[in-house]
Amino acid sequence: MKEEGKERLRSRSLAHLMPLIAPVHILILSVIVIPSIYVIWLSVTQSSFGKAPSFVGLENYIRVLTDPAFHRALWNTVGIVVVAVHLELAIGLLLALLFASGLPLRRYLLVAVLAPYAVSEVTAVVMWRFLFDPDAGPITQMLQSLHLPILDWSYEPTHAMILIAMLTIWLHLPFTFIILYAARLAIPLDLYEAARIDGATPLQAFRRVTLPLLGPAIVVALLFRYIFAFRIFSEVWLLTNGGPARTTEVVAVYLYQEAFSYNAFGTAAATAWIMVVVSLLLAVGYILLLGKQVNANAH
């Protein structure tokens, strides 16, 4: 019946549907797609405000890829993506299992886990800056009174990156947790029942039932978070401004500095396209997986 309906509608002209889908596509084309394509042109030209651009080929890309500041920014970004996203996934997974094991007041605890989702990057930076203020922050004070090392994030680039990673995990854990928890709840109870009857220990049940069935959700959460962590800007900009001496820059901050501080739109555009390509490569993985899931659902 459903297929028949679709068949009938398929013959209708596309023009008929245009008024419905046009607003979305006009917005996306004019704000995202055409500007992004224009960035390709910017990336192969040399220009700054008010000057006519001239074609320079791949020069901007070479300049970016050989710039030590870009290398630093890239490594910082990769560091955040690798460390923060995987830690976040591990914590999210543990939380999902904790919730699935049965907790009193689960509804309220779920809301507590979601709370950071509502917090803006700006306010989150205010919070964590205060807690870890090198002189007077409550957590710094606590660490000092326990004779533990403190985070001297305004001078030590590594410490700053640790604080940024924590901030990122804090802001995005709700998303990762929800994806994994929803997938965990979708696993049929009979499977655990069967595993128990077969004499499986809880650990074996986790390895043989939970983990394989959570696989797709884990990969989806990971890819999403790779893509979104790769574009990190506000947390870094608001916490350190990329300093001291450009040591804590990430790729998006590097891009911003090139464009809006140094007026080098060509290299900024080249950086932008490097970001797009990396994001799209990760996206290909996601879409292939999505296709596989759709097929699996259809069977």
Binding site: I32, P35, Y38, V39, L42, R231, A272, V276
Partner: peptide, 23 residues
């Protein structure tokens, strides 16, 4: 075009600031 919508969502927003700023 649905696929296109999904892909577009994954383009980093900072990319479009470069051409949109002068426009």
């Amino acid at each position: 075009s649905v696929l296109f919508l999904i892909v577009v969502r994954l383009i980093p927003p900072i990319v479009v600031t470069l051409p949109l700023f002068p426009i």
